[in-house]
Design a protein around this nucleic acid. Sequence first.
DNA 1: GAGTAATCTAGTCAGTGTCAAGATTCACCC
DNA 2: GGGTGAATCTTGACACTGACTAGATTACTC
Lengths: 192, 192
Amino acid sequence: MSTHASYHHGNLPRTIISAALDVIAESGPSALSLRDLARRAGVSHAAPAHHFGDRAGLLTAVAVQGFGFLADALAEAQRQSGDFLEVGVAYVGFAVGHPAHFAVMFRPELYRADDPELIAAKARAGESLYRGAAPFGASESGPDSQEAALAAWSLVHGFATLWLSGNLPAGLPADPRQAARGVASVLFSGRG
Amino acid sequence: MSTHASYHHGNLPRTIISAALDVIAESGPSALSLRDLARRAGVSHAAPAHHFGDRAGLLTAVAVQGFGFLADALAEAQRQSGDFLEVGVAYVGFAVGHPAHFAVMFRPELYRADDPELIAAKARAGESLYRGAAPFGASESGPDSQEAALAAWSLVHGFATLWLSGNLPAGLPADPRQAARGVASVLFSGRG
DNA sequence: GAGTAATCTAGTCAGTGTCAAGATTCACCC
DNA sequence: GGGTGAATCTTGACACTGACTAGATTACTC
C-alpha cells in the first residue's frame, strides 16, 4: 500500500519537505525550486503547489518544523542537565544538526510570518529558550536579567550562524558542540 | 558631461550597486533581479551583466564594499575609544547602518568567495576585528584569548543578525547601538 | 456502489539569468 | 583632425522558474 507507481503519490508533502531540506542544506534556500522538488518526487511540476500553496508556504512548513525541533532540543537539554550552558550548547547543536531548518527559521522574509502554526511553534521555542536562560539572567547582579538572557542567546546564535556560513577561523575543535561549549563558557563562567 | 540621455550611461556600475542595495535592504538578496535593476537604471536588460558578469558577480562587489566599510568602522571605533566594547558596538552599528551589505557579506553561497578582492577586503575587516578584540582576549585569565575574541564576535554578530531579522523581543532600547551596548556589557563587564 | 472531496496532471503566462552578436560611443595615438 | 581599438550598451534568443486555470484520476464516505 505504500509504493503505488500510480496517480497518487501517497505521501507527497513529507517527500517534498524532505527533498527541500536536502537542497537547502546543500545550496541554501535561494536555490530551492518547486519544479525541481516535483521532479525529484516524480510528480508533475504543479503538484507541490497543491499542498503548500506556493514557495513561501513550503518554507513556512519548514520553519514550523524547525521551531518545533528547536523547542524539543532546548527542553531536553534543560531537563537532562539543568545547566544553561548546556542549553546554549544544545542551541548550537540544533543549528548544526538541522542546518536547513536553521537557514530558514530566522529569515522571516522567506515565509509567512503571520501563519498561526508558525507563531505557536516559535512561541514554544522562545519559551524553552527563556526557561533555559532564566537562571543565568537571575544570577546576574548588575545588569537586568533580560539583557543577560539576550547576551546568551546572541552569543550562541551568532556562533551557530558564523559556524554554518563557514566564517569562523581554523583551529577550532572539529565538533561544533565542543567548540561552542568553549566559547560560551567565556560568557557563562563564574556565574550562576 | 554627467547626464547624457544617450547611449552611454556614464556610471552604470555605481548606479546598479546603489539600486541593488535599496532592493536588498527592503526585500533581501533573493528578491534581487538584474533585469529590475537595469529597468531602474534606464538601461537594457543585459547591461548589468557586462560589468558584473552575473548575479554572483554583482553580489561579490556588494560584499567587497561591505567588508571595506566594516573594516573602516571597526578601525575608527578602535582609534577613537580604544575600548573593545565600543568596537563591538561599532560592529552592530555597521550592521544596522548597512543592512544590505550585512545581509550579503556572511552568505558566501551568494557570491564568489574565491574572488581576490573579496579575500583581501575580508582579511582587512578580520584584522580590524581582531585588533579590537585583542585586549579583551588578553585580559582573560582562564580561557585562551581566541575563545574570548570569538565569544565577543559571536555575541555582537548574533545580536546584529537577530535585530535585523526582527527576531528580538520588544522592550529594548530603540537605538540598536544602545541596546547592543547593554547586552555586550554583560560579556565585557568586569574585564580588561 | 454513487457522490463528493482530495490529489495530481497538463497547459499556459509573465518573468528571470545567461549567452551571443551587433550597434554605438569613448579614448588614445598617429 | 582622423582613424583604430576597446569599452559600453542593445537586441534577440533560450531554457528555466513560480503561479494560475481547467481537467483527469483516485480515495473516502455514506
